[in-house]
Amino acid sequence: MTDQDWMTEVRTYVGKQYGRIYAWDKVNSPMIRQWCELMGVTVKTNSEGKIIAPPAMLQVWCMEGPVQNNYPPGSTTENPYEVLKQIEAHNFSSTVAVNSELTFDRDVVEGEDLYYTTRLEAISEEKTTGLGTGYFVTLIMDYFSIRAKNGEDEKVGQLMFRVFKFRPANVHTPAPAAEAAAPKIKRPAPGVSDDNRFFWEGAKQGKLLIQRCTGCGDLHHPPGPVCPKCHSFDWNAVEVSGKGTVYSFVVMHYPEVPPFDHPNPIGLIELEEGVRLIAQLVGIKPGDVQVGQKVQVEFNTFNDGELTLPQFRPVA
């Protein structure tokens, strides 16, 4: 089968509508409150006194949970990603997500039952990028509330999800096992954007910088384009003391991921300025970490000096 023939067959799936994926639970106030607490936003209610789910939670309600493809009874068993498997079978083995865009028709409130359907929207012509050569595949997920309006299901939002299935460029033939030296595993580098670049540049200079809203003076972390308190876009960065306490912590045992030590204690640190951030705890045995323990930031370099991370060490 020629490239044109197999892709013609794959393109017959464009426009296919897949069945419903239901939410395990109704939209409920405990999950909303936990989300708002973790995201640092205020719980809001509508004119009827019902709690409003933050729009960004829309995907959360219909997720399967920690067990893959574990959807509620009545959900479709069709695989909306089947076309990706067919493209992969023709040696387009790599996948990268390139777009994920949520739009909202209205607020979702506690007590509603949700589901979504999936439609294969488009498959691009063959494209060549810096990653390699392949196809962009676009899926549309429409979210509905069951019998929300006049006894009929009502659309509440939509997710556009696009992936690139490709053959990697510049694939090198590996050296024979006897000749290949074991690669030195590096720590993964953080994602750096215009919003957080100041934080990582400050770390390289041995400074712990926190974003401050110049409108209301609120300190917040992680950095973002908008103040979560007053919604101002104006901000600067201030150096903080680096002193704090362990507000909470976890000890990661598995999986054992090089080059991290194991067990690996990770702390949620509350700085004396009132801001919390997540960082690795050093200079202490995992079993000795305690909530309320006083800690101080220190800056350590990794990856042959390419990466500087703020870590926290207990204060005697």
Rank of each mutant, 00 (worst) to 15 (best):
K50C: 10
Y116I: 04
K85V: 05
V282S: 00
P223C: 12
A181G: 11
I52N: 10
V226W: 05
H231S: 01
T308Y: 10
G65F: 10
V60Q: 14
A189H: 14
E152D: 09
Q280T: 11
N303G: 08
V41R: 06
V156M: 06
D153Y: 04
E152P: 06
V60K: 09
Q296D: 09
P190L: 05
A169Y: 05
A180K: 11
N91W: 14
E37K: 12
E9T: 12
Q158Y: 01
V250M: 14
H90G: 05
N70G: 07
T133L: 08
Q211F: 15
D105N: 11
P66L: 14
N69E: 15
F164K: 06
V282H: 06
A53R: 04
L219R: 12
E154S: 08
I278V: 15
G15H: 14
G74Y: 13
E152L: 08
I52Y: 15
A122W: 07
A182I: 06
H262L: 12
Q296W: 01
R167W: 08
H221G: 04
F302R: 09
C227W: 01
T76M: 10
K186R: 10
Y143A: 01
A56T: 15
M39Q: 14
I266T: 05
G134M: 05
H220R: 11
M31W: 13
M160F: 01
L307A: 01
V240Y: 09
E101K: 03
F104T: 05
V163W: 03
K165W: 03
M7W: 01
M39L: 03
P258S: 02
L208K: 08
C227F: 01
M31H: 06
K207I: 00
V163L: 10
T214C: 06
Q4H: 07
E110R: 02
N91K: 14
I51E: 15
I284W: 03
G215L: 04
F136L: 00
S93A: 07
P255L: 09
